[in-house]
């Protein structure tokens, strides 16, 4: 232990001897995903924490997972269905809005919550190191819990309408559901961590996000079918990577709309690009963000 290093290192001491080397800026593409995997227990515990703590000291507890989508759906049915009389591709209005809401909510929640990663966790990040990416990833999973509950609720309503003879036609496209979920999660995470990385420098983005996500919903066929959009504007709606996801989901379970694989492929490509940019950016920011909060 000397200042001038006059302790002679044992022969053969080389880089491999060190378990950790701390350097200024890591290689741009050194994402240390292996480390993220090593900390998978932590990700799991974050999910558990979020799930357990969210509805503690609320009277209805996890029932809120069911109340939220039902209330939203009823609101949409009344405002957009009864008052504005928007078309629903001939589907029961309640099911039409609920299918859109369930899918959109998962994406929007993933985006909203991950976009706050650095701000809400600055206390924790300032004290101890762990792969920061495990926080937004845990958010995807805790939102997935809510999604699954709401999805099961949707299936119940679907079954009810089906039995009572409404014109809905579930088909083989339902097999794509896991892929749809993956793409919603991926897109939500990608956009979310891009925003969270940028908010460490430009705080105003936080307000923009809440507002922007709301607007985005209206640019997505949640409350209207793609078929109701005039042909020449349809390309704009189709440019939205969430559109094919909502359309495919609705077609798979309710049998109305016109999904195609090419559009889904577009969403998939979009997800890969956004996710890559997001992870690279996040990785770069996490090294020094504590200096800027």
């Amino acid at each position: 232990m000397t200042a001038n290093g006059n302790v002679i290192e044992p022969a053969g001491a080389d880089a491999e001897r060190w378990s950790l080397v701390i350097r200024p800026q890591r290689n741009l593409f050194d994402l240390r995903l292996g480390e993220l995997w090593k900390y998978r227990d932590l990700t799991g515990l974050f999910v558990r924490r979020d799930f357990v703590s969210v509805y503690k000291q609320t009277i209805l507890g996890p029932l809120w997972y069911l109340i939220q989508p039902i209330l939203t759906t009823i609101t949409f049915t009344v405002i957009f269905g009864r008052i504005a009389r928007l078309p629903t591709d001939g589907l029961p209005q309640f099911l039409f809005y609920m299918s859109g809401t369930v899918v959109w909510t998962y994406f929007a929640e993933c985006l909203n919550k991950t976009s706050n990663t650095f701000i809400t966790n600055s206390q924790l990040f300032g004290k101890v190191y762990f792969p920061r990416l495990s926080v937004p990833i845990s958010i995807l999973f805790s939102n997935l819990v809510a999604f699954v509950i709401q999805f099961l609720l949707f299936l119940c309503f679907m079954l009810y309408f089906w039995v009572s003879g409404a014109g809905i036609h579930p088909n083989l496209w339902v097999l794509l559901t896991p892929l749809l979920i993956l793409m919603m999660a991926g897109l939500g995470l990608g956009f979310g961590i891009i925003v969270s990385s940028l908010t460490t420098r430009y705080r105003d983005l936080r307000f923009l996000v809440t507002f922007g996500v709301q607007l985005w919903m209206y640019a997505t066929p949640v409350i209207y079918p793609v078929s109701s959009i005039p042909e020449r504007y349809r390309i704009l709606i189709q440019a939205n990577p969430i559109t094919p996801l909502v359309e495919t989901f609705r077609y798979a379970f309710l049998g109305a709309g016109a999904p195609n694989l090419l559009n889904l492929l577009y969403s998939g490509g979009f997800m890969v690009v956004v996710l890559t940019i997001g992870i690279l950016l996040f990785n770069r920011i996490e090294a020094t963000f504590m200096d800027t909060v």
Binding site: R17, W18, S19, L20, V21, I22, F125, Y129, A287, M290
Partner: peptide, 20 residues
Amino acid sequence: KILSRITAPTSGEIKVMGRV
């Protein structure tokens, strides 16, 4: 803070053997 990887150094490096 640098040693416990809360923030990254501007230049130079730390090599560590074992868990901190």
